[in-house]
Amino acid sequence: MEARDISRVFMKSGKNFYAIENVNLFIRSGEFLGLVGPSGSGKTTIGRILVGLLPATRGKILLEGNEICFPFSKKVRPMLQLVFQEPASSLSPRLNILDLVREPLILNRFPADKSKDMALKLIYEVGLGEEHLNRYYWELSGGESQRVALARAMVLRPKIVVLDEVSSGLDPITAIEISNSVKKLSGRYGTSIIFITHDLGLAWSYCERILFISHGKISGEISEKEKRLSPQARKMVEVTIKRQSILSS
């Protein structure tokens, strides 16, 4: 997928305010891309625009070479998914876990038995078990309900999944476990992942490429080959290194 010169503007006290400005990014099939920046930097906005929850005020989005316009068509929608920061707010309190993971399939007219099999498979793959099937999300821990959200997002075998700060509410150990599950699933199904976070270290452990964003603009990029960083992004890297050395002692 490629995003060209995406901007999103909204009015605030009579003036134009750029949530994101002239953002260019691309992601290849199966790639694990990180998007790192502080709160309010616009990374959540980018994530939402890329999956079609928000329209970009300017710019183009291309998927596999074809331009897609907001609102995305019914064929395109299932290919782009997003996992929210708060699982509690994106899961229905009325459906049990099995039905929650089946819902996207049923919506897309998969036959009943097939949808059950696919849902079960994914539920086990994210690390939940039979005892969870009949429960409701509010009976589970934060980490477990985040896994449910992940299963829901993956069950339609999307091409791209955006993870919007999914580790923020979790303790570091659970965050690592969830990220491991994501990596595993992405590898198995060839899904591209956009990993949005403010934790540089976490992104570093999983991403092949990291984009830095600050004040609505891309301020740097790190990958195996390249290393272009703005001063602030550079500082973030330095601070992270410094911190891990404190702990090593």
């Binding site: 079609g52 019914k74 299932p78 998914q81 707010s89 994106s90 819902e103 919506l107």
Partner: peptide, 25 residues
């Protein structure tokens, strides 16, 4: 505007389904 509805939209749910299944209750 809740994330729940946004998630449904992502799965391709359309207006009537969202309204009857998730908003009405």
């Amino acid at each position: 505007n809740s994330p729940l509805i946004e998630a449904e939209i992502l799965f391709g749910a359309r207006g009537f389904y969202i309204f009857s299944r998730h908003i009405l209750p």
